[in-house]
Protein backbone atom coordinates (compact mmCIF):
# COMPACT_ATOMS: atom_id res chain seq x y z
CA UNK A 1 0.00 0.00 0.00
CA UNK A 2 2.75 2.42 0.98
CA UNK A 3 4.63 1.31 -2.10
CA UNK A 4 1.65 2.24 -4.32
CA UNK A 5 1.34 5.66 -2.68
CA UNK A 6 4.99 6.33 -3.36
CA UNK A 7 4.51 5.30 -6.94
CA UNK A 8 1.54 7.66 -7.36
CA UNK A 9 3.40 10.55 -5.80
CA UNK A 10 6.40 9.82 -7.99
CA UNK A 11 4.29 9.69 -11.11
CA UNK A 12 2.05 12.63 -10.21
CA UNK A 13 3.88 15.34 -12.12
CA UNK A 14 3.86 13.16 -15.20
CA UNK A 15 0.13 12.50 -14.92
CA UNK A 16 -0.50 16.17 -14.33
CA UNK A 17 1.55 17.10 -17.34
CA UNK A 18 -0.34 14.64 -19.49
CA UNK A 19 -3.63 16.30 -18.69
CA UNK A 20 -2.44 19.88 -18.72
CA UNK A 21 -1.71 22.20 -21.60
CA UNK A 22 0.60 25.17 -21.80
CA UNK A 23 -2.42 27.01 -23.11
CA UNK A 24 -5.91 25.98 -24.13
CA UNK A 25 -8.39 28.35 -25.78
CA UNK A 26 -11.61 28.09 -27.76
CA UNK A 27 -12.54 30.46 -30.58
CA UNK A 28 -15.72 31.06 -32.52
CA UNK A 29 -19.19 29.67 -32.08
CA UNK A 30 -19.29 28.24 -28.57
CA UNK A 31 -22.61 26.54 -29.42
CA UNK A 32 -20.91 24.44 -32.11
CA UNK A 33 -21.16 20.74 -31.27
CA UNK A 34 -17.66 19.60 -32.23
CA UNK A 35 -14.84 22.13 -32.40
CA UNK A 36 -11.88 21.84 -34.75
CA UNK A 37 -9.06 20.65 -32.50
CA UNK A 38 -5.68 22.13 -33.35
CA UNK A 39 -2.67 20.70 -31.61
CA UNK A 40 0.12 23.24 -31.75
CA UNK A 41 3.53 24.20 -30.42
CA UNK A 42 3.02 27.85 -31.37
CA UNK A 43 2.04 30.41 -28.73
CA UNK A 44 -1.65 31.31 -28.88
CA UNK A 45 -0.80 35.00 -29.28
CA UNK A 46 0.63 34.27 -32.76
CA UNK A 47 -2.24 32.12 -33.88
CA UNK A 48 -5.17 34.06 -32.43
CA UNK A 49 -5.47 36.46 -35.40
CA UNK A 50 -5.30 33.57 -37.88
CA UNK A 51 -8.01 31.60 -36.10
CA UNK A 52 -10.13 34.70 -35.57
CA UNK A 53 -10.09 35.40 -39.29
CA UNK A 54 -11.00 31.78 -39.96
CA UNK A 55 -14.00 31.62 -37.64
CA UNK A 56 -15.16 34.99 -38.95
CA UNK A 57 -15.32 33.47 -42.42
CA UNK A 58 -16.86 30.20 -41.29
CA UNK A 59 -19.88 30.80 -39.08
CA UNK A 60 -20.93 27.93 -36.88
CA UNK A 61 -17.39 26.66 -36.52
CA UNK A 62 -15.50 26.55 -33.27
CA UNK A 63 -11.77 26.07 -32.94
CA UNK A 64 -10.06 24.60 -29.91
CA UNK A 65 -6.41 25.59 -29.78
CA UNK A 66 -4.18 23.39 -27.65
CA UNK A 67 -0.57 24.38 -27.03
CA UNK A 68 2.26 22.17 -25.83
CA UNK A 69 5.98 21.62 -26.49
CA UNK A 70 7.10 19.98 -29.71
CA UNK A 71 8.27 16.68 -28.19
CA UNK A 72 5.18 16.34 -26.00
CA UNK A 73 2.99 17.26 -28.96
CA UNK A 74 4.47 14.46 -31.02
CA UNK A 75 3.94 11.91 -28.26
CA UNK A 76 0.36 12.99 -27.57
CA UNK A 77 -0.60 12.93 -31.23
CA UNK A 78 0.90 9.48 -31.80
CA UNK A 79 -1.09 8.25 -28.80
CA UNK A 80 -4.43 9.58 -30.02
CA UNK A 81 -4.41 10.66 -33.67
CA UNK A 82 -8.21 10.65 -33.80
CA UNK A 83 -8.44 13.27 -31.05
CA UNK A 84 -6.99 16.07 -33.17
CA UNK A 85 -7.72 17.54 -36.60
CA UNK A 86 -4.70 19.71 -37.32
CA UNK A 87 -1.15 19.43 -35.98
CA UNK A 88 1.14 22.44 -36.11
CA UNK A 89 4.72 22.27 -34.93
CA UNK A 90 8.07 23.93 -35.38
CA UNK A 91 9.88 20.58 -35.10
CA UNK A 92 10.10 19.79 -38.79
CA UNK A 93 11.74 16.44 -38.23
CA UNK A 94 9.01 15.14 -35.93
CA UNK A 95 6.33 16.43 -38.27
CA UNK A 96 7.96 14.84 -41.29
CA UNK A 97 8.18 11.55 -39.46
CA UNK A 98 4.49 11.79 -38.61
CA UNK A 99 3.70 12.28 -42.31
CA UNK A 100 6.11 9.51 -43.32
CA UNK A 101 4.54 7.15 -40.80
CA UNK A 102 1.13 7.70 -42.39
CA UNK A 103 -0.47 9.91 -39.75
CA UNK A 104 -1.29 12.71 -42.18
CA UNK A 105 -4.12 13.07 -44.70
CA UNK A 106 -3.38 14.34 -48.21
CA UNK A 107 -4.46 17.76 -49.42
CA UNK A 108 -3.97 19.20 -52.89
CA UNK A 109 -2.33 22.59 -52.74
CA UNK A 110 -0.74 23.12 -56.15
CA UNK A 111 -0.27 26.88 -55.68
CA UNK A 112 1.88 26.30 -52.58
CA UNK A 113 5.62 26.21 -53.36
CA UNK A 114 6.98 22.71 -53.82
CA UNK A 115 9.85 23.07 -51.35
CA UNK A 116 7.36 24.03 -48.63
CA UNK A 117 5.30 20.89 -48.92
CA UNK A 118 6.08 17.22 -48.60
CA UNK A 119 4.09 14.34 -50.05
CA UNK A 120 0.99 16.58 -50.23
CA UNK A 121 0.63 16.03 -46.51
CA UNK A 122 2.99 18.39 -44.72
CA UNK A 123 2.90 22.13 -45.38
CA UNK A 124 5.48 24.68 -44.29
CA UNK A 125 4.01 28.13 -43.76
CA UNK A 126 6.76 30.22 -42.12
CA UNK A 127 10.48 30.76 -42.43
CA UNK A 128 11.98 31.42 -39.02
CA UNK A 129 15.71 31.63 -38.42
CA UNK A 130 17.43 30.52 -35.23
CA UNK A 131 19.05 33.56 -33.68
CA UNK A 132 21.55 34.66 -31.05
CA UNK A 133 19.67 37.01 -28.73
CA UNK A 134 21.62 39.25 -26.36
CA UNK A 135 20.73 41.63 -23.61
CA UNK A 136 22.64 44.78 -24.63
CA UNK A 137 22.70 46.14 -21.07
CA UNK A 138 24.61 43.14 -19.78
CA UNK A 139 27.00 43.26 -22.71
CA UNK A 140 27.65 46.94 -21.91
CA UNK A 141 31.00 47.87 -23.44
CA UNK A 142 31.62 44.51 -25.09
CA UNK A 143 31.19 44.28 -28.88
CA UNK A 144 28.02 42.49 -29.99
CA UNK A 145 28.85 39.19 -31.71
CA UNK A 146 27.98 38.87 -35.41
CA UNK A 147 28.61 35.17 -35.73
CA UNK A 148 29.03 32.00 -33.68
CA UNK A 149 32.78 32.48 -33.85
CA UNK A 150 32.42 36.02 -32.37
CA UNK A 151 30.20 34.62 -29.63
CA UNK A 152 32.75 31.92 -28.73
CA UNK A 153 35.48 34.53 -28.48
CA UNK A 154 33.53 37.00 -26.40
CA UNK A 155 32.35 34.23 -24.01
CA UNK A 156 35.88 32.83 -23.64
CA UNK A 157 37.33 36.26 -22.98
CA UNK A 158 34.79 37.17 -20.28
CA UNK A 159 34.02 34.05 -18.23
CA UNK A 160 33.34 36.07 -15.03
CA UNK A 161 30.64 38.14 -16.73
CA UNK A 162 28.88 35.28 -18.51
CA UNK A 163 29.04 32.42 -16.01
CA UNK A 164 25.44 31.30 -15.40
CA UNK A 165 24.20 33.92 -17.83
CA UNK A 166 24.20 31.93 -21.07
CA UNK A 167 21.27 29.81 -22.16
CA UNK A 168 20.13 27.49 -24.91
CA UNK A 169 17.57 24.78 -25.51
CA UNK A 170 17.74 21.53 -23.60
CA UNK A 171 17.79 19.33 -26.67
CA UNK A 172 16.61 16.40 -24.57
CA UNK A 173 13.26 18.12 -23.90
CA UNK A 174 12.72 20.37 -26.86
CA UNK A 175 12.05 19.00 -30.28
CA UNK A 176 12.84 22.31 -31.93
CA UNK A 177 16.05 22.66 -29.89
CA UNK A 178 17.09 19.19 -31.03
CA UNK A 179 16.34 20.06 -34.66
CA UNK A 180 18.39 23.27 -34.51
CA UNK A 181 21.24 21.53 -32.70
CA UNK A 182 21.46 18.63 -35.12
CA UNK A 183 21.29 20.91 -38.16
CA UNK A 184 24.01 23.12 -36.65
CA UNK A 185 26.17 20.11 -35.89
CA UNK A 186 25.69 18.91 -39.43
CA UNK A 187 26.88 22.23 -40.83
CA UNK A 188 29.92 23.02 -38.75
CA UNK A 189 32.24 21.96 -35.93
CA UNK A 190 31.81 25.48 -34.49
CA UNK A 191 28.62 24.25 -32.87
CA UNK A 192 30.48 21.76 -30.69
CA UNK A 193 33.05 24.34 -29.64
CA UNK A 194 30.28 26.76 -28.73
CA UNK A 195 28.52 24.07 -26.70
CA UNK A 196 31.76 23.35 -24.84
CA UNK A 197 32.28 27.04 -24.07
CA UNK A 198 28.69 27.40 -22.92
CA UNK A 199 29.02 24.25 -20.80
CA UNK A 200 32.06 25.72 -19.08
CA UNK A 201 30.01 28.85 -18.30
CA UNK A 202 27.30 26.80 -16.57
CA UNK A 203 24.80 27.24 -19.36
CA UNK A 204 21.14 27.28 -18.36
CA UNK A 205 18.98 24.88 -20.36
CA UNK A 206 15.41 25.67 -21.40
CA UNK A 207 12.51 23.74 -22.73
CA UNK A 208 11.05 26.62 -24.68
CA UNK A 209 11.89 29.86 -26.43
CA UNK A 210 9.41 31.81 -24.31
CA UNK A 211 11.12 31.29 -20.96
CA UNK A 212 14.52 31.94 -22.47
CA UNK A 213 13.36 35.30 -23.78
CA UNK A 214 11.71 36.11 -20.46
CA UNK A 215 14.99 35.51 -18.66
CA UNK A 216 16.85 37.61 -21.24
CA UNK A 217 14.42 40.46 -20.75
CA UNK A 218 14.76 40.34 -16.96
CA UNK A 219 18.54 40.18 -17.18
CA UNK A 220 18.92 36.65 -15.79
CA UNK A 221 20.52 35.79 -19.10
CA UNK A 222 22.96 37.87 -21.08
CA UNK A 223 22.93 35.76 -24.23
CA UNK A 224 20.81 32.91 -25.56
CA UNK A 225 21.72 30.71 -28.50
CA UNK A 226 19.35 29.24 -31.11
CA UNK A 227 16.34 31.21 -29.97
CA UNK A 228 13.47 31.50 -32.43
CA UNK A 229 14.08 34.88 -34.06
CA UNK A 230 10.39 35.51 -34.55
CA UNK A 231 9.59 35.19 -30.85
CA UNK A 232 12.56 37.31 -29.84
CA UNK A 233 11.74 40.00 -32.39
CA UNK A 234 8.24 40.27 -30.94
CA UNK A 235 9.64 40.80 -27.45
CA UNK A 236 12.54 42.99 -28.58
CA UNK A 237 10.12 45.75 -29.48
CA UNK A 238 8.71 45.89 -25.93
CA UNK A 239 11.94 45.14 -24.00
CA UNK A 240 14.35 47.53 -25.64
CA UNK A 241 17.45 45.83 -24.27
CA UNK A 242 17.07 42.76 -26.48
CA UNK A 243 18.94 42.47 -29.76
CA UNK A 244 18.35 39.67 -32.24
CA UNK A 245 21.42 38.61 -34.19
CA UNK A 246 21.30 36.18 -37.12
CA UNK A 247 24.70 34.41 -37.14
CA UNK A 248 26.36 35.54 -40.33
CA UNK A 249 28.22 32.32 -41.19
CA UNK A 250 25.31 29.93 -41.59
CA UNK A 251 21.96 31.04 -40.27
CA UNK A 252 19.67 28.06 -39.75
CA UNK A 253 16.05 28.68 -40.61
CA UNK A 254 13.17 26.32 -40.02
CA UNK A 255 9.67 26.15 -41.41
CA UNK A 256 6.72 25.83 -39.11
CA UNK A 257 4.65 23.03 -40.56
CA UNK A 258 1.05 21.91 -40.41
CA UNK A 259 -0.64 18.62 -41.25
CA UNK A 260 -4.14 17.20 -41.12
CA UNK A 261 -4.60 14.07 -39.05
CA UNK A 262 -5.59 11.10 -41.16
CA UNK A 263 -8.03 10.18 -38.41
CA UNK A 264 -9.33 13.75 -38.12
CA UNK A 265 -12.91 13.85 -36.79
CA UNK A 266 -13.56 16.94 -38.93
CA UNK A 267 -11.52 16.51 -42.09
CA UNK A 268 -13.42 19.08 -44.18
CA UNK A 269 -13.08 21.88 -41.64
CA UNK A 270 -9.45 20.90 -41.16
CA UNK A 271 -8.81 21.24 -44.90
CA UNK A 272 -10.57 24.58 -44.98
CA UNK A 273 -8.42 25.76 -42.09
CA UNK A 274 -5.19 24.68 -43.75
CA UNK A 275 -6.17 26.43 -46.97
CA UNK A 276 -7.00 29.52 -44.97
CA UNK A 277 -3.64 29.35 -43.20
CA UNK A 278 -1.71 28.97 -46.46
CA UNK A 279 -3.70 31.75 -48.09
CA UNK A 280 -3.03 34.14 -45.20
CA UNK A 281 0.63 33.17 -45.28
CA UNK A 282 0.80 34.02 -48.98
CA UNK A 283 -0.61 37.48 -48.17
CA UNK A 284 2.22 38.02 -45.69
CA UNK A 285 2.40 40.71 -43.01
CA UNK A 286 0.25 43.11 -45.02
CA UNK A 287 -2.65 40.65 -44.89
CA UNK A 288 -2.29 40.46 -41.10
CA UNK A 289 -0.23 37.26 -40.99
CA UNK A 290 1.40 37.44 -37.58
CA UNK A 291 4.35 35.12 -38.31
CA UNK A 292 7.23 35.53 -40.76
CA UNK A 293 5.87 34.16 -44.04
CA UNK A 294 7.77 31.73 -46.24
CA UNK A 295 10.97 33.17 -47.62
CA UNK A 296 10.47 33.66 -51.33
CA UNK A 297 13.85 32.13 -52.01
CA UNK A 298 16.50 30.55 -49.86
CA UNK A 299 18.89 33.50 -49.79
CA UNK A 300 16.24 35.96 -48.56
CA UNK A 301 17.33 35.25 -44.98
CA UNK A 302 20.97 35.02 -46.03
CA UNK A 303 21.13 31.32 -45.26
CA UNK A 304 19.53 28.01 -45.89
CA UNK A 305 16.19 26.81 -44.69
CA UNK A 306 16.10 23.27 -43.44
CA UNK A 307 14.48 21.43 -46.28
CA UNK A 308 11.55 19.04 -46.02
CA UNK A 309 13.33 15.84 -46.83
CA UNK A 310 13.17 12.27 -45.52
CA UNK A 311 16.72 12.83 -44.24
CA UNK A 312 15.17 14.83 -41.39
CA UNK A 313 14.46 11.43 -39.87
CA UNK A 314 18.19 10.69 -39.62
CA UNK A 315 18.66 12.24 -36.19
CA UNK A 316 15.38 10.77 -34.96
CA UNK A 317 16.94 7.35 -35.31
CA UNK A 318 17.20 5.83 -31.83
CA UNK A 319 20.93 5.15 -32.08
CA UNK A 320 21.75 8.46 -33.74
CA UNK A 321 19.75 10.35 -31.10
CA UNK A 322 21.44 8.47 -28.29
CA UNK A 323 24.87 9.22 -29.72
CA UNK A 324 24.07 12.85 -30.39
CA UNK A 325 22.66 13.48 -26.92
CA UNK A 326 25.63 11.68 -25.41
CA UNK A 327 28.00 13.97 -27.24
CA UNK A 328 25.89 17.05 -26.45
CA UNK A 329 25.80 16.18 -22.74
CA UNK A 330 29.54 15.62 -22.79
CA UNK A 331 29.96 19.08 -24.22
CA UNK A 332 27.48 21.15 -22.25
CA UNK A 333 26.50 19.35 -19.04
CA UNK A 334 29.41 17.43 -17.54
CA UNK A 335 31.95 20.18 -17.64
CA UNK A 336 32.62 20.67 -13.95
Amino acid sequence: MRYLAVLIVALWPALLAAAEWEDHQTFGDTEASAPLRILSSTDTSFFAPIIAAFVARQPGVAVEYLVTGTADLDARFRDAPAAYDVVISSAMDLQLKLANDGFAAPLDMPEHPDRAQWHKRLFGFTTEPAAIVVNKELFADLPLPRSRQDLIEVLRANPERFTGKVGTYDVRDSGLGYLFATQDARSSETFWRLMEVMGRLDARLYCCSGEMIDDLATGRLAVAYNVLGSYAEARATEAGALTVILPSEFPTAMMRTALISRAAPQPEVAKAFLRHLIQMQAGGGDAGFPLPPLATSNDATGGTSISLDPALMTYLDRMKRQMFIQEWENAIVQQD
Binding site: A99, D309, A311, M319
Partner: peptide, 25 residues
Amino acid sequence: VLLDFPYASLSMLGTSADDRVFYAI
Protein backbone atom coordinates in the same frame (compact mmCIF):
# COMPACT_ATOMS: atom_id res chain seq x y z
CA VAL B 1 26.65 -2.32 -32.46
CA LEU B 2 26.56 1.37 -33.40
CA LEU B 3 25.62 2.93 -36.72
CA ASP B 4 26.31 6.64 -37.01
CA PHE B 5 24.99 6.88 -40.54
CA PRO B 6 25.25 10.13 -42.46
CA TYR B 7 22.46 12.53 -43.35
CA ALA B 8 22.95 11.69 -47.02
CA SER B 9 21.83 8.08 -46.47
CA LEU B 10 18.20 9.16 -46.37
CA SER B 11 18.67 12.46 -48.19
CA MET B 12 19.55 10.64 -51.40
CA LEU B 13 16.10 9.06 -51.37
CA GLY B 14 14.30 12.36 -52.00
CA THR B 15 12.04 12.12 -55.06
CA SER B 16 9.80 14.48 -56.96
CA ALA B 17 6.74 12.77 -55.53
CA ASP B 18 8.16 12.91 -51.97
CA ASP B 19 8.09 9.16 -51.59
CA ARG B 20 7.87 7.82 -48.06
CA VAL B 21 10.97 6.12 -46.71
CA PHE B 22 11.30 3.33 -44.19
CA TYR B 23 14.35 1.62 -42.82
CA ALA B 24 15.23 -1.00 -40.30
CA ILE B 25 18.56 -1.94 -38.75
